[in-house]
């Protein structure tokens, strides 16, 4: 078991290194001067390109830049990267503490602090969406399976498919404009910090969370439904029935357990992916989370922020995969530890 965990961690580490280096190659491959992507419209001001190049160390070869970045992640680093510039313009020195993910001259801020500021918002949204999609998705799937082939089944699966067919931003804007503003059925979907007002936090999260959840619900209903149906037809359940166990016990103690275990893995991975921000939902509802930060950075050319986010999100996915694999091995002894 420990050997498995260690092996899994090691392969995750290799993956992290390869992934981060690949990211660097993608953005700093020399095909296009990356400094042009660090200042947006300020790039036209004389001196800004040169300053940013020296500040971010973009004049180094890619491997050197990568090494400096990795070092920054573990021990932090100072910007400007160029020692001469640090000396001549000490007022611009910014300390970027570990884990340093870079520095944005455009926002005059370290990427780490920008991410830290936005992370709670995306996490809140992820939690809200997760609760709803598990409640509606898994719940709906179970109901559909129990009424297989009858009208509740068709209604649930059909509705989910129809919602899934409309683009997320369309559904989000529709909910925002009609449900929240025109009909005033829900409170304004404005983000309030949990520490400030937990009730307002939850109220504000309802519509964005629902929008995001609707994207996942269709898939989960269908998955749950087919898993439950499959599990219900397994042989040992027939045995249990023959033994005279009552229906309810069979359904909840046996069928559901075996049907829902694989769902946990999937849900955990989807949840982890959402921690990195929901670009479209956050854009529609103006939630200043990681997704909005990412899309803003990408469209206004704030390359250090973009690279920092890509690396963070990919890392979350890799870590989540390791955790899920290990947990799965713990939960389900049948999993081959290979």
């Amino acid at each position: 078991m420990y050997a498995y965990v260690i092996r899994r961690l090691f392969s995750g580490l290799v993956m992290l290194i390869v992934m981060s280096f690949a990211t660097f190659l993608m953005f700093f491959n020399g095909a296009v001067d990356p400094v042009r992507y660090t200042c947006g419209k300020a790039c036209g001001v004389p001196g800004v390109l040169e300053r940013n190049r020296a500040m971010l160390g973009y004049d180094d070869p890619v491997p050197v830049q990568y090494a400096k970045f990795v070092k920054g992640v573990f021990v932090g680093r100072d910007f400007p990267d160029d020692p001469a510039l640090r000396k001549s313009a000490p007022e611009t020195i910014a300390r970027c503490d570990a884990p340093c993910l870079g520095y944005s001259p455009k926002e005059n801020s370290t990427v780490t602090s920008m991410l830290a500021e936005r992370a709670p918002i995306s996490a809140s949204l992820a939690v809200a969406a997760f609760i709803m999609w598990i409640a509606f998705g898994v719940g709906g799937g179970i109901v559909a399976a129990l009424y297989k082939g009858r009208w509740p089944d068709k209604l649930i699966v059909g509705t989910a498919l129809i919602f899934y067919a409309f683009p997320t931003f369309f559904i989000g804007l529709f909910l925002y404009k009609f449900v929240a503003i025109k009909w005033e059925l829900t409170p304004q979907p404005v983000y309030t910090a949990f520490t400030e007002d937990p009730v307002a936090w939850a109220m504000g999260l309802f519509l964005p969370g629902l929008t995001l959840a609707l994207f996942y619900i269709a898939g989960y209903i269908r998955l749950t439904r087919s898993y439950v149906i499959e599990a219900a037809s397994e042989d040992y359940l027939r045995t249990a029935k023959a033994k005279g166990l009552d229906k309810r016990t069979i359904l909840w103690k046996h069928t559901m357990r075996s049907a829902l275990t694989p769902l946990i893995t999937l849900a955990a991975l989807d949840f982890a992916g959402l921690l990195g921000g929901a670009i479209i939902t956050e854009t529609v509802f103006n939630y200043q989370g990681l997704g909005k930060l990412a899309v803003d950075a990408a469209t206004t050319w704030d390359l250090p922020v973009t690279v920092g986010i890509v690396l963070t999100l990919s890392t979350i996915v890799i870590l989540a995969n390791i955790i899920v694999d290990v947990l799965y091995a713990v939960i389900d002894p049948r999993v081959k530890l290979a």
Binding site: C39, A42, V45, P46, G47, V48, E50, R51, A89, E91, T92
Partner: peptide, 12 residues
């Protein structure tokens, strides 16, 4: 007004 001359740092 002296800060306007540091336009490479204080752009915009």
């Amino acid at each position: 007004v002296s800060r306007a001359f540091a336009y490479d740092v204080l752009d915009g």
